[in-house]
């Protein structure tokens, strides 16, 4: 859906463009047998980007829970809580996995504005992809859990190193220092973001000044790309996700001459 408006006309001109997109998909059948495909994480009646995993129920198990016997077999305080769906006291691949969310966006939007006053033109584009309702999540263990299988914090710059859990420090969003649970589960984060994607300020020289110089056009501009991102995602860039390199930020000054 797209809306283009001219909000003001005259010496001060303001144009806007608003784009909104929403996409939904659903698998109706896979191989003609109405059966799910666990290996590829494809489920009848669910979006193709479904993520099948153990479900974290928030926080880490505490020592108190250990003493009371409330922790499932083989797990320890300082490890993330997992849901024991069948209540048998163990976490097993056969009965304790579920669809924890979807990789695809919930919706996208972008807002473009162009403001002109006399010889100046200011334009900017805000771009956003939004999750919510379980959409647009991605596994982010490497950045969030320094001790997934080895202390990667020693070997890479981690943007999101967190204080490890200790029995008495009240941390619930990071595991204990030595954490290798029997069952690995994803630490999913919402990748929703709003990005100031483009910003440019242009000054067009007066036609009268140009004819003296015998030029067809003369323009001075400053423009920036990817200037700021608002997000709660703690990896590199929310749009490229966990493993890829982030987008570059660039700023350019320029003079454009038309002969």
């Amino acid at each position: 859906m797209e809306i283009s408006t001219i909000n003001l006309e005259g010496a001060f001109r303001w144009e806007s463009r608003f784009v909104f997109a929403l996409n939904r998909d659903k698998i109706t059948d896979l191989y003609g047998d109405k059966k799910d495909d666990l290996g590829n994480s494809w489920f009848i009646g669910k979006p193709i980007s479904s993520i099948y995993d153990y479900q974290r129920t928030g926080g880490v198990w505490t020592e108190d829970e250990l003493y009371k016997g409330q922790i499932v077999t083989g797990f320890y305080p300082g490890q993330f809580r997992l849901r024991d769906f069948d209540g048998d006291g163990q976490i097993t691949p056969g009965s304790d996995r579920t669809i924890v969310g979807y990789g695809t966006p919930n919706y996208r939007f972008s807002i473009g504005n162009t403001l002109s006053f006399k010889n100046f033109t200011l334009s900017f584009l805000i771009n956003s992809i939004q999750g919510g309702n379980g959409y647009y999540i991605q596994r982010n263990n490497y950045f969030l859990e320094a001790t997934t299988d080895f202390n990667y914090a020693q070997r890479m710059n981690q943007p999101a190193v967190r204080t490890n859990w200790l029995p008495d420090n009240g941390v619930t969003d990071a595991p204990g220092v030595y954490n290798q649970p029997l069952i690995l589960s994803g630490n999913y984060q919402d990748r929703s973001f709003i990005r100031l994607q483009d910003l440019s300020l242009v000054y067009n020289f007066q036609q009268s000044a140009l004819s003296a110089l015998k030029l067809g056009g003369l323009q001075l501009y400053i423009s920036g790309k990817n200037l700021h991102v608002w997000t709660n995602w703690e990896g590199y860039d929310p749009e490229v996700g966990g493993s890829s390199l982030p987008l570059m930020r660039s700023v350019a000054f320029g003079l454009k001459v038309n002969l």
């Binding site: 691949p93 299988d149 080895f150 202390n151 030595y178 290798q180 649970p181 029997l182 690995l184």
Partner: peptide, 20 residues
């Protein structure tokens, strides 16, 4: 390098698993 760590095969219980 990390004898108390949890890299592969340092601790069979937690690394020799179907998900590793």
């Amino acid at each position: 390098e990390t004898p108390g760590g949890q890299r592969f095969l340092n601790n069979y219980l937690t690394s020799v698993t179907p998900q590793y």
